[in-house]
Design a protein around this nucleic acid. Sequence first.
DNA 1: CATGAATGAGTGTTCATTCAT
DNA 2: GATGAATGAACACTCATTCAT
Lengths: 191, 191, 191, 191
Amino acid sequence: MSRDRILQIFDAAAEVFAETGFDRARIDDIAQRAGVAKGTIYYHFRGKDELFSALMTEFIRRLQEECDRHGTPTDDPVEDLKRRVEAMARFLLANRRFAVMLLSEAWGSERRQHAFRSQIRTIVRAIEEVLQRGLQVGAFKAWDAGVAAAGIFGSITVTALYTALIDRAPDDDTVARQIAEQVIGGVLPVR
Amino acid sequence: MSRDRILQIFDAAAEVFAETGFDRARIDDIAQRAGVAKGTIYYHFRGKDELFSALMTEFIRRLQEECDRHGTPTDDPVEDLKRRVEAMARFLLANRRFAVMLLSEAWGSERRQHAFRSQIRTIVRAIEEVLQRGLQVGAFKAWDAGVAAAGIFGSITVTALYTALIDRAPDDDTVARQIAEQVIGGVLPVR
Amino acid sequence: MSRDRILQIFDAAAEVFAETGFDRARIDDIAQRAGVAKGTIYYHFRGKDELFSALMTEFIRRLQEECDRHGTPTDDPVEDLKRRVEAMARFLLANRRFAVMLLSEAWGSERRQHAFRSQIRTIVRAIEEVLQRGLQVGAFKAWDAGVAAAGIFGSITVTALYTALIDRAPDDDTVARQIAEQVIGGVLPVR
Amino acid sequence: MSRDRILQIFDAAAEVFAETGFDRARIDDIAQRAGVAKGTIYYHFRGKDELFSALMTEFIRRLQEECDRHGTPTDDPVEDLKRRVEAMARFLLANRRFAVMLLSEAWGSERRQHAFRSQIRTIVRAIEEVLQRGLQVGAFKAWDAGVAAAGIFGSITVTALYTALIDRAPDDDTVARQIAEQVIGGVLPVR
DNA sequence: CATGAATGAGTGTTCATTCAT
DNA sequence: GATGAATGAACACTCATTCAT
């Protein structure tokens, strides 16, 4: 079925985009790694941009899903946030290539980057909402939730990437837990 | 003197690299904005890579300088860290274009990106050192300082960029202060 | 019956070839407009060239038919010519899209263009013959009939296309009649 | 000087465009025949379209010039027209490759074709004006001058091309004279 | 020191054609 | 008979880099 071909292409594209970034990624490479002809990619996707967007959308969806699954609203916003952050950290540590895209391909002025950014915003807003919920019950410090959420998002993504560069970095599980705790500490009210 | 020419080129390069990222930046554009001929750039720099590196080095130097100036070691590591983080935040909020580079051009495998990354590491290590110092006097939670420093660096850079996208974001000063406090909260030991 | 399919394809091909010319015409477009799959076209025609040729042959046939019907040899070659020219003009004014092909796709060196040209020659020769007949009875000026026939053919085709560009051009009937008279005037002997 | 390069490119482009038509013309070919690198063409022209347009503009200019030089208004519109038509015929017979473009590349809906068409209109209008002038002194038949001018233009261009296909066609001079006379005959009032 | 014309390798995209179903 | 997914050759265009002046 054509679903197979698309998945082959997706996998190859994920590799290549992550290794070289959008601009240096060559459709030829993606095709070769996917084991299809170049034309096949253009048969299924309008172009490089659309391929990239489709891929990122898929990743964002999975990330979102993962976070939602672990961070379902309960009575304890602090615990919710911690779980959500930890889930996000785990996902990005396991998909560092995607984390690279998240930081590298989001800030420009191309249409594709705009689109990507608004997807990222959805993720950050999900964090923000947990913060808002907690704020109302006094669980979190009363400051700008948008700014705080951005900081949390940055902590997670950058740490996920940076730890790959650290000699003797803790294992991913430990890192995920540390990030979560650190992030939580940052938003708890001073006792 | 040729110092002028070089500064013209630097300014133009800063603009263009930041607006479009390294790959899409065109030497033609930089030359035009600098008001020099294309050949002139190649007279002063070996190529695009070297121009980029020289520029980033300069920015990193200024950022470092700014942080060091405000975060000079005192008896109080918490205060040191807070000041250093706030200084960094202020600098990046004022130079968002550079913040973009910091996040976008650091993660690939090109020589230039390696070089850039090791410069960034210097910055993160400076944060790490303050953390270590604080750790020894029990001022900070006893966890992996490298991971914590990475998180702090991510908080600052991403927030600096993300606030540009938030409707009704607080002014840069407020943001800088909030980041600093939030970051500090994240590393303080539970009381 | 498959005759239907072929006609659908013919109609669509006529539209698309005329709108964009042979080279820019896309088989995809033709298939879509014909409401058939791309493969179906290749089932019925060897390829783009053959489809084009078949289509042009059909048009030429209809044009020829139209001219022959109105320009049947009588005792009066002048009247014959006038009627034939007028019929041709009417046909081309009514099928301007085909007139475009007649002028655009005839002059190159591709096999298809050679073939098309020899079909066009048949049309011009028909004019030439009427001229020859008239010449023998002194009805027309005694000059090169081939050259004259070419000029007549050019008058008709170009006028058919050009009038679409003229503001406030007369209606097609008037144009056809004027072309015929003008053309006749051009070949009558000086009295 | 760079004027040389441009002329080299122009010459090569004229050849290639005429031989194959706009769509099939390959920039690589033009570059090779011009003895320059492909990039050089793009250094001097924005793209294939602009190269084509520049080239056609140049030809149109020369054609116009030629016609104006021979068809300068005098007291005798009939003679003026005859001379103008003959000059045009001579030019197109000598530059049949350009005549091909005139008929082939003028009728589509691309921007380039629109532009080309409006240049062609200028030529036809020049004929029209002579006709109008003659009309006012009763030298020509009183019918639509636009239509008549189009017919004249078609006569000339098509004949120029068609004679190349005729066995034993008269020499170009004779053809030019015959066209002119025939065309004039077409517009003279019936005596 | 500075210039800008010239270069050509590199790459995204198109589209006629094929063929297994 | 008919389909449409897959193909890959072909091509326009870009842009970092060079070098003669």
